[in-house]
């Protein structure tokens, strides 16, 4: 159902598009748009889930419970300290190679290349995002939290109403940067057989051996990065409104 919709959209785009009028490229329009949609899919889902996860990690890192604090620290240390490519291969071929029986219910996350790509990108993104957000929180004057507690807010309330909104404002530009990095990092999932924009491009190149194939992909990535930057800019303006 969803898949049908996706392919319809892709066909519609190609029927009106004017991709470079080079025969060896234009005949692959469907592939490009199919891959483009997969990349957007992954971008949206990983950023959303990664952000939610990041808030949990931040809460653990600035919280009072020592074991949780250590766990959160180790998590972000491991995911920020190893290359994304290594993480993908460890999860896909390493852990995923154990098979459905050994992994039990966890197999959902390993059953397809897309699922592993989503899982690893989400974990990776949440590790970086949590550090960025934590930086924002640490930079808020201590008095804000004290004032919140004084008027009777709980820890969660103070985090949600006072600290996170301010932390978000401070860390938003760095976070925007991280979103673009997720986009570029997502190209690596083509190595575990996901047909994202990069995966489709490599397959196109394998057929026509025309280096323009990569140029088209680069333009599409630039377009996406530009869209993300514009989104970041709009949100930044909104966040800064009360301070101008």
């Amino acid at each position: 159902m969803y898949l049908d919709l996706k392919y319809r959209l892709s066909d519609a785009v190609c029927s009106v598009s004017t991709l470079p009028n080079i025969e060896s490229i234009s005949s692959y329009c469907g592939r490009y748009i199919d891959g483009f949609i997969v990349t957007i899919e992954l971008m949206l889902t990983t950023c959303l889930c990664g952000f939610i996860l990041a808030i949990g990690i931040v809460a653990a890192r600035v919280g009072k419970v020592a074991p949780l604090r250590w766990l959160a620290y180790i998590f972000s240390y491991v995911f920020r300290g190893t290359p994304l490519l290594v993480q993908l291969w460890v999860f896909y071929y390493g852990i995923g190679g154990l098979g459905a029986e050994t992994l039990g219910p966890l197999w959902v996350f390993f059953s397809s290349a897309w699922a592993v790509g989503f899982l690893v990108l989400t974990l990776n993104h949440s590790a970086y995002a949590s550090e960025i957000l934590r930086g924002g929180i640490v930079n808020i004057d201590r008095g804000n939290a004290d004032a919140a507690y004084t008027i009777g807010m709980s820890k969660i309330q103070a985090l949600r109403r006072i600290l996170l909104p301010q932390a978000l404002r401070i860390s938003w530009p760095a976070y925007g940067n991280e979103l673009v990095l997720v986009l570029k990092g997502s190209a690596l999932i083509s190595t575990i057989s996901v047909m994202d924009l990069m995966g489709q491009t490599r397959t196109i190149f394998a057929r026509n051996y025309d280096l323009n194939a990569y140029a088209v992909a680069a333009i599409l990535y630039l377009f996406l990065a530009g869209t993300i930057s514009f989104f970041i800019y709009c949100v930044e303006r909104r966040l800064n409104k009360p301070y101008r």
């Binding site: 071929y93 995923g96 190679g97 098979g99 059953s111 290349a113 057989s193 047909m195």
Partner: peptide
């Protein structure tokens, strides 16, 4: 699913994906 090497495709067959 397209893989960079043939052994990678075989290992995914074994993993059941």
């Amino acid at each position: 699913n397209l893989y960079d090497t043939l052994p990678a495709a075989f290992s995914d067959l074994k993993a059941g994906r």
